[in-house]
């Protein structure tokens, strides 16, 4: 093979590799919202949501869950399911929900990817600071080669599935409370 042709092929191969690998993207807030959540009761109160323990995703990092995206997804799920009458920002609200990302176990390599997520949920009544719920929630997310060809996309899908399940479990637990 001619040297020039070989160089072109190598460059093309490298570019293809980079294009296929792509950059990691964070879990999407829309994809983390459970779409068909039906709660056992709707609380006639307002809710403030706080999140922590998440992380931003840089281009070469694995998919993470950002605090702001998790907060928005939980708020959206609360609004859609009408679990609380309203969502408030700042320091107002009848109740405070705090959700902490405890651990997000992601594979570094693989075909079918399995992600394990643990979150901690606490619900506090603002009036007397009574703690009404403290719960550790474990969830899983899986994505196969049939769902996405590139690793980074599969990983994001698995993370989103785990986050969606976590939000579902957390809100269903709150719906069981008598507030």
């Amino acid at each position: 093979m001619l040297p020039a042709m070989r160089r072109q092929l190598l460059t093309g191969s490298a570019l293809l590799g980079i294009a296929l690998a792509g950059c990691s993207s964070p879990a999407s807030r829309e994809a983390m919202v459970p779409s068909d959540l039906v709660v056992s009761q709707q609380h006639r109160h307002s809710l403030r949501v706080q999140t922590s323990g998440g992380a931003e995703t840089s281009g070469l990092d694995s998919s993470n869950i950002a605090d702001a995206d998790l907060k928005a997804a939980i708020e959206d799920a609360v609004v859609r399911s009408r679990l609380f009458q309203s969502i408030v920002q700042g320091n107002d609200g009848d109740y405070e929900l705090h959700v902490q990302v405890v651990s997000l176990r992601r594979p570094l390599i693989g075909g079918t990817l399995n992600v394990e997520l643990e979150t901690g949920w606490s619900l506090v009544r603002r009036a007397d600071r009574a703690v009404l719920l403290r719960k550790s929630i474990h969830s899983n997310g899986t994505a196969s080669m049939a769902e996405a060809f590139t690793f980074v996309t599969r990983l994001r899908l698995a993370v989103e599935t785990a986050a969606r399940d976590s939000i579902r479990q957390g809100l269903l637990a709150i719906a069981e409370l008598n507030l």
Partner: peptide, 24 residues
């Protein structure tokens, strides 16, 4: 080989440190 690597792995040069305490 490049396609396989791109499919199965992700690159990394990352530093991250977080800490949080539940308000309760």
């Amino acid at each position: 080989l490049l396609g396989l690597v791109a499919t199965l792995t992700t690159g990394c040069a990352v530093n991250r440190a977080t800490g949080s305490v539940d308000p309760s």
